[in-house]
């Protein structure tokens, strides 16, 4: 839903966008910011500085500050004199913005990836969430809220392991 506008225009901007996009997510370091889909734009300014647009997963997500600092550091190390990271809310981020590769890595990391979007907010629990450990579809919800704002806590009734589920937003 956000790919109608390119993240970067010129070659240099594309290069910088790739660098910024390669920064790992501070809470789920298996995912890069590009795979998470939170990088919205990279623009060169006339003064040689760079503007970066970043969108939060949740409005109150505390990781956004660490993301901004990491992007600033990576681009500064690349020789950009001044980096300004801006938080943009619109269009709102959705779990559908996580790339296919990102979903694969989440599952590999032990976090059940979000299901494709149905409507806004909660998805009926009848749609099954697969256990990222043993692959069973026999899983149950323990809590709608878990270790971070974006996850719910579930348990596999086959292998008995609890696991996080990246809940649909």
């Amino acid at each position: 839903m956000v790919t109608d506008a390119p993240v970067a225009q010129t070659r240099l901007e594309q290069e910088l966008a790739a660098l910024a996009g390669s920064v790992p997510d501070p809470e789920m370091p298996v995912l890069s910011l590009a795979e998470l889909g939170v990088l919205r734009g990279v623009r060169m300014r006339e003064d040689g500085g760079v503007d970066v647009d970043l969108t939060p997963t949740y409005t109150g997500c505390p990781a956004i500050e660490a993301m901004s600092a990491d992007i600033e550091r990576v681009l500064t190390d690349h020789g950009i004199p001044q980096v300004s990271v801006h938080t943009v809310l619109s269009p709102a981020w959705s779990t559908d913005d996580i790339s296919a590769e990102g979903r694969r890595k989440l599952a590999e990391f032990g976090i059940a990836p979000p299901r494709p979007h149905a409507s806004d907010g909660p998805v009926p629990v009848s749609l099954t969430v697969r256990c990222p450990h043993c692959g069973s579809t026999e899983t149950e919800l323990l809590s709608r809220f878990s270790s971070t704002a974006c996850k719910a806590l579930r348990r596999c009734t086959s292998c008995r392991e609890p696991f996080d589920h990246f809940k649909e937003l």
Binding site: T59, L89, G121, P122, F145
Partner: peptide, 18 residues
């Protein structure tokens, strides 16, 4: 308030559910 609302409405849906 539309940009914030578009984001917040999805978060609030979970609060309602809870």
């Amino acid at each position: 308030f539309a940009p914030l609302a578009a984001k917040a409405v999805k978060e609030t849906a979970y609060h309602v559910d809870h």
